[in-house]
């Protein structure tokens, strides 16, 4: 599943570690989501969407 997480993070000039801290997950999790190796749970997807003020569909694209 494609996602715009890396782009959104770059817009805010956050490191993966900073984003991970805001989401209360590990840096490895942020990296795995960004590189599309891991699809986050619905609750984490909601957390990400709320943090960036977007809808889930705007960030994640099932293709």
């Amino acid at each position: 599943m494609k996602n715009a997480l890396r782009l959104l993070r770059a817009e805010r000039d956050w490191t993966q570690a900073e984003l991970a801290e805001r989401l209360d997950v590990s840096r490895q999790t942020v990296n795995a989501v960004e590189t599309e190796k891991y699809e986050p749970s619905l609750s984490l997807a909601f957390k990400i969407a709320r943090l960036f003020g977007r809808s889930i569909e705007e960030i994640f694209d099932p293709g």
Binding site: V25, S26, T29, Y38
Partner: peptide, 8 residues
């Protein structure tokens, strides 16, 4: 205590 990726 781990996050979801680590648990997986």
């Amino acid at each position: 205590r781990m996050d979801e990726l680590h648990r997986r």
